[in-house]
């Protein structure tokens, strides 16, 4: 039974974390909002009220629409590869195989590679048009090597990011798969359901929740993809691989346009919040269980 004394104690114990997070949530966000209505460039000491001008400039910049499109393609492409690949891989790893422990370790490893390293390994040693492994393989079979980052910049980044996140999806789906009861699968088998039907009617519904969680959590992280773009294409050629995060960075730290970058930041926050609402519902439901 919670007494009044223990409740006071609980409040005191929670206070530091609540205060710290409250400051972290409010102060930078309010500042971003404030800056987004100012004419403020780091190269120009005079600031003035701008109204909605920053938003107008940011949104009408052709780079903006392209970056939104790229962001959606990036998130969607990676999700497609990782969820479909993750389900297949989880089903495979759920089978009885020799050396399961080692296979599992090999499969999850890419997830632990820091983004700049992952991107540079792929850029230089795999996708390099002259010396990369992909080019060597293409040459062996008599094909013209592909200059990945010049011809398919966004797709190349999608491949790299999917490689990093496939282990995450696999691991979570595998964990969910393993909680499926043997009896249920056997019962379906005895009823004469074939493998495909068992997958559609038993396995997939069982995985639905885990798939939702994978999609939502990955989306949160994928909306903010930054280092992979920075070290591979730097957003180019042109704006072909610039996503929203990179566009804001570019506006802020390369053009020193504080107002414009802040307007972009606010737009990014709104976009992320739409996703967040869904994620919070999915996670929140679990608290009652």
């Amino acid at each position: 039974m919670a007494t009044r004394e223990s409740r006071t104690l609980a409040r005191i114990m929670m206070a530091p974390s609540v205060i710290v997070l409250l400051i972290w949530m409010i102060v930078p966000l309010v500042l971003t909002l404030w800056f987004s209505f100012q004419n403020y460039n780091l190269l120009n000491p005079i600031t003035s009220f701008a109204g909605l001008l920053n938003y107008q400039f940011f949104v009408t910049d052709p780079a903006f629409l392209q970056s939104i499109g790229n962001t959606l393609l990036l998130v969607g492409g990676v999700l497609l590869i990782t969820v479909v690949g993750g389900i297949l891989l989880a089903l495979l790893l759920d089978q009885p195989i020799f050396g399961q422990g080692i296979v599992r370790i090999l499969v999850i490893s890419p997830f632990f590679i820091m983004p700049p390293v992952a991107a540079l390994i792929w850029k230089n040693m795999l996708m390099h048009p002259g010396y990369g492994i992909f080019a060597r393989i293409a040459e062996t079979f008599g094909f013209q090597p592909v200059d990945w980052f010049a011809q398919f910049p966004l797709f190349s980044i999608i491949l790299i990011v999917a490689w990093q996140w496939l282990p995450f999806a696999t691991l979570i789906l595998l964990t969910a798969l393993q909680s499926l009861s043997e009896e249920q699968k056997e019962a379906a088998e005895m009823d004469g359901a074939n493998a495909l039907r068992r997958f559609i009617y038993i396995v997939l519904p069982h995985l639905a929740r885990a798939i939702t969680v994978v999609i939502l959590i990955q989306t949160i992280f994928l909306l903010g993809i930054f280092a992979e773009v920075l070290v591979t294409t730097n957003g180019g050629p042109g704006y072909n691989s610039t996503n929203l995060a990179f566009l804001v960075y570019r506006t802020a730290l390369l053009s020193f346009d504080v107002g414009g970058a802040s307007a972009g930041g606010v737009i990014a926050v709104i976009l992320a919040n739409i996703v967040a609402i869904f994620l919070m519902r999915a996670v929140g439901r679990n608290l009652d269980a």
Binding site: L21, W24, M25, V27, P28, L29, L31, T32, F35, I220, L223, G224, F226, L244, A245, V248, Y249, A252, L253, V258, A261, S262, G264, G265, V266, A268, V269, L271, A272, N273, V275, A276, L279, M280
Partner: peptide, 13 residues
């Protein structure tokens, strides 16, 4: 929910 805030949203401040 504080974890959902995108980093670029507060990069400038």
């Amino acid at each position: 929910s504080t974890k959902m805030m995108p980093a670029v949203g507060v990069l400038v401040p």
